[in-house]
Design a protein around this nucleic acid. Structure first.
Lengths: 273, 273
DNA sequence: AGTCAAGTTTCGTTATACGGAACTTTTCAT
DNA sequence: ATGAAAAGTTCCGTATAACGAAACTTGACT
């Protein structure tokens, strides 16, 4: 047999730079100093390659070597980068706060979504404290045609755009409720546009009901971020969901306000305090 | 408002990967969305080059585009990277030693914090040896508006940033002492800015008093590192806490020094003051 | 001194970055 | 609606950097 290569982590990426970022992630998880050899064993990459990468990171102050010249630790520049990344991410912070507030109000899991490519991307999510719940983590994706926010995004598009997005692949059925007929879907989308909100009534996952609205900024520019409540049908019926609509809309407006504020391209933020 | 070529920032580095990291630093400083064009103007780099870089960052989930496909924001992967970097940087760090030293001096539990999203993140913590104590572990989070370090972070933001972070969701009450009125909070924050330190007087947990200062880097930029003492009110009154202030400030300076110290090892610290 | 393991350098071979110019899409003024 | 300006995107020949097997150096321990 062969040697037992544990290789818990893999450095992946299509380009050298992406691989370097992946390496940074491996390093970020370490709470102790590490050596070149330890990384070789952990990632299975060739030693000269890792050596070169570490050299670059050290050369730019992202990493620092200990006095013995073989143990690496995180450098100041890297720490500062991390600090600034978090410090200046008020948009995410504010959105998250609104989402938490909404979850408190309605008592069910809520999420913020965006259209990314031809799929709906979960940007952020706050879980209910209820024991029974669907677990969908931020970063996961869902098809447009069977998600509440997806329908809203579709409803905003021109017919041409919509067909371009949906026209290629047939509408995949995930449950018996999934709308797989294009005409049916168009009809649903018309209704959605009228109402200003959309349901996903077990169209993606059996037992999951979802209601969503858009966080349209008032200027009309289509900053289409969606916000949704989702829960098991045993706790959330269509009727109950509609009762949550005002709270949902309020949250959507709050998020729209944040986004339009953050969209203003200021060239210089006031530094004086 | 004309497009003077200010070129405040330069993307420098000997290798493509280093230049990409430099770009990340530019991006880390932004608290609003940005466009390709804005980066072109800010850095003076060729458009296709920046386009390619952003493409790589977006493709690997480090950045995310808004639905309008021209505004970029920080992605989840980048946020996670930043959090892990800060969170796992403690055990062998010189900061931990400073914290231990402070605990020895004042005899109460102390911690190092950073702002992450709309919450304060505990980066590191050293417990007192006293039997009676609050147990809060590194990695846990606390709302900004009712924590000592949170108020300090808020105090250094621009009014616009602060409003964005606090304005859209009501201030949740955790105890009867929690400041839930925005005007009251603004007033408190003004005071905090004057004083340079902040209390949390049972505003998050009943019976818990806390005093904090920032580890300001000497260059005067914003800081995302706070340091705090916390203890049950039966052992730590406001008066007693103020007596600890010199020790606390000394520790903060020590931590700030660690950060800028290693900068001297860098090729060139002195960018213009 | 001798051995071994970790770190480092070399170098021919690929793969990627680079960025001017051309092209496409969106935006905005008329 | 219409067209011009601006932003985003793609092309592609050239320049540069990444790659990693192998050879070499360093240092720790015997």
């Amino acid at each position: 047999m062969t040697s037992h290569k544990t290789e818990t982590t893999r450095i992946e990426g299509d380009t050298p730079a992406q691989r370097l970022l992946a390496l940074l992630e491996v390093i970020a998880d370490k709470d102790h100093f590490f050596t070149l050899q330890s990384l070789v064993e952990e990632t299975g990459m060739p030693k000269p390659t890792l050596h070169r990468m570490l050299q670059q990171l050290e050369g730019s102050g992202m990493l620092q070597r200990e006095a013995d010249s073989r143990h690496y630790g995180k450098g100041n520049r890297l720490r500062r980068l991390a600090e600034n990344l978090l410090l200046n991410d008020t948009v995410h912070g504010a959105r998250h706060a609104v989402l938490s507030q909404l979850v408190d109000e309605v008592g069910e899991s809520c999420n913020i979504t965006a259209l990314s490519g031809s799929e709906v991307l979960y940007l952020d999510r706050v879980e209910t404290s209820e024991a029974l719940r669907f677990y969908l983590h931020p970063g996961s994706r869902v098809p447009v045609h069977c998600s509440a926010s997806g329908k809203l995004f579709l409803a905003q598009m021109s017919p041409a755009q919509r067909r371009r997005l949906l026209g290629e692949a047939p509408l995949k059925a995930f449950t018996t409720n999934t709308l797989t007929d294009m005409d049916q879907l168009e009809q649903e989308i018309d209704a959605v546009r009228q109402q200003g909100y959309a349901f996903d009534d077990e169209e993606f996952l059996s037992g999951l009901l979802c209601i969503a609205v858009l966080a349209n900024n008032p200027q009309g520019g289509k900053s289409n971020i969606g916000i949704a409540i989702q829960a098991p049908i045993m706790r959330l019926t269509r009727e109950k969901a509609l009762e949550c609509l005002p709270a949902l809309q309020r949250a959507a407006n709050a998020i729209a306000a944040i986004d339009s504020d953050a969209m203003l391209t200021q060239h210089h933020t006031a530094s004086s305090v």
